[in-house]
Every structure is written in C-alpha cells, then in structure tokens.
Design a protein around this nucleic acid. Sequence first.
DNA 1: TGACTAATAT
DNA 2: CATATTAGTC
Length: 336
Amino acid sequence: MREDESDWFARWEEELPSPEELMPLSQSLISPDLALAFDIRSPSQGNGNSNQPHHHHQTTTTPTTPSQLQLPSSQANSSAEFAADSADLGSGGAAGDEPARTLKRPRLVWTPQLHKRFVDAVAHLGIKNAVPKTIMQLMSVDGLTRENVASHLQKYRLYLKRMQGLSSGGGAGSDPATDRLFASSPVPAHFLHPNRVPSSDHFMPSFVPIATLQQQQQMAAAAAAAAASNPHLQPAQFHHRQIAAAHFGSPTNGGFHSPTSNGQFGSPTSNGFGSPTNGKFDPSFLARQTQQQQPIHRMSTPSLHSPVGNYVEDLESANANGGGRTVLTLFPTRDD
DNA sequence: TGACTAATAT
DNA sequence: CATATTAGTC
C-alpha cells in the first residue's frame, strides 16, 4: 500500500500540466495595457495576494516559435494612440485620481490547466479545508486572487452537487458545454461522497507550494515602465469594450511541479497533512504569506527559472452575444 | 477584522 | 453562461 502513495504522487505529477502548459497567471494578466491596470482592486480588500509578475527565463526548451515573444505592446489593438500625455490619465478630467488603483482586472479565464490545478489543490486539501484562501495559496498561481478562486469554487461546488444528484439516477452523461471545463479534470471520489472517509485516506505527503513569494516591487516597476511607455489607459478606456486577450504559451514551473528527484523542497513543514477529510491538518505548509512586501528572495529552487512568458495578444471576439467582452486567456487555449 | 458562502450583477 | 462583485454572517 505504500506504493500507492508514491503511485498517486507519480500519477499526480503526470497529470499535472506540463511545463509547457503551465504558466504564471499574473504575468498574463498583466498585459501592457493591463499593466497599468493590474494594480490591486479595492483598497479594503486586502487581497491576500495581489499579483506579482515574475520574470521568467526562456527555457531553452521552448521550441515554440520564437516569433511571439515579448510583449507586443499590445498595441496590436487599434488604440495605439493612447499614449499622449502622461499626466492625467486619470479619469479624465477633473478628478484625476489614481486610475491604476481603480482599474479592474480582466476576467480570469479558467482554462483546463488552471482548473486542474484548482481541483488538485482542493483534492489535496480536502473539502474541509478547501476554502478560497487556502486553495489559492496551494495553487500558488501567480496572479490568482482569492475572489477568483472563491467564485470558481462556488461554481465547482454546484457542479459537484449536480454530479451527485445525477450519479444516483443513472447516469447518463452530461455533456453540456457547461460541464466541459469541469469534466476536464477528474473529480476526486471523496468529493462525491462527502460522508465517506477513506480509511487509508491521507494523501499528500508533503505537498509543497513553491512559489508563493513574489515581488510586488517588481510588479510595480513593471507597471511603471509600462505606464511610462503607455501612459494611460484609464479604466474608462477599458471600461467598455474589448481588450486583447492574452494567450499564454510558455512553460513555467510555476511551482506546482515537484522536483521529485531533487526534491529540495524539504520544506520546514513538510509534514503530511493529517487527514484531509478527517482530522485537522496543519496549514503550516502555507507558510505565512504575509501580504506583500517581501524582499525578493526567491527560494533556492533547483531551477525554478521560468521561461519568459511569451504570450501573444489576441483579439478574441469572444462571444457573439451581447457584445465584446474583454477576456483574458491565461493558458494556451489548448483543450485537452 | 478577515474570510466564507450565497446571492446577485455584469 | 462564466466570472465578478456585493451582502450577510461568523
């Protein structure tokens, strides 16, 4: 049975999105235009995690066409002429406040990869501890906010409920596009059986959330740079109508991957969680991520250099529904 | 106060 | 419809 442990782990690793598919979220969130807007949202919401851009190195293994690299300045958009005066981008006018502060971030798009990470996190945490903040931390996806997770979690829960109800009936399959995303990731058994607790339960020997510390300053710098370059796109600009969708296609070890062999992770708290569904687990592994303001000390990860995220901005007409929506695609829209 | 969930808005 | 945002509660 011990093998099971390593087995599941191996399986888990395998299922994880390959580095090529993984990527740092925030980076994508922060498109040039957005760079300006990437700032945090409401002042009151401490926002456990703001977004922090990482700088990734290009892994030599990025066979992908080198063509799309770097930030295209998004000028691809038609509005390249936003730049003009730097002074007031603020709301035009009068009040000129801090636009960056009030900007809204683009809608997060839950790609299968992202969702997978989400499910993995939830599975490993156990429904009990699977609350937005924890999930978010475990996912360790740069740029993901607690609210993003909360929202998704809500929906996921509904989905699970639906599944439960359906499963007893018989089965038929549901293929509505609605579940498409959720279907992309297997739902851990316990999820469907809230009451059942596997005797041998306990997975997650020592899961280690790597990344998690990011530098806000860098982000600020980046923003500043972006701002300088593209002085403004005030919210009003985004406000209504389309932005460019950023597609990501870059490998990144985000931090989810485990360096098995190298396992330097020896995290101080590499404890095996207690039981996900049973006892209480020590969130120590969460490493108190005290808000932001951390000295950019990257962990000594073996080789956590991530490739630069070469994302391309694409205008996604998105839907033909009511009108253009601004959407940000994080991962390469690669369906599984 | 901060976080969670449910409800509602976009 | 998928997310985001708000509101009520703990």
